[in-house]
């Protein structure tokens, strides 16, 4: 399955970070905040205002503009 932008994921969907194409400075900031390559994120809220993510248990609010520059590969847990 192809990569999509983080802002298109619905609540409770997971994605693996593949890349970010914002400005260089913001890129690095996001990496340092834990949105590094291959990190697994879960979208908690995505309707209005910044998108809220769950990054291994910690919540991060990310401006909509930024979230639409983060490429993720949708990730599905196997049903158990």
């Amino acid at each position: 399955m192809g990569d999509v932008y983080l802002s298109t994921l619905k609540p409770n969907e997971y994605g693996r970070i593949k890349g970010i194409d914002s400005g260089c400075k913001a890129n690095k900031r996001l990496y340092e905040l834990g949105l590094y390559k291959n990190a697994l994120v879960k979208v908690v809220k995505n309707d209005f205002g910044p998108v809220i993510l769950n990054l291994s248990g910690n919540k991060l609010a990310l401006g909509r503009g930024l979230a639409s520059k983060v490429l993720v590969e949708p990730y599905f847990f196997e049903r158990n």
């Binding site: 913001a26 996001l30 910044p50 919540k59 609010a61």
Partner: peptide
């Protein structure tokens, strides 16, 4: 204006 990035602590 710069982007909004903020942690929401528990």
């Amino acid at each position: 204006s710069s982007h909004f990035i903020m942690e929401l602590p528990p």
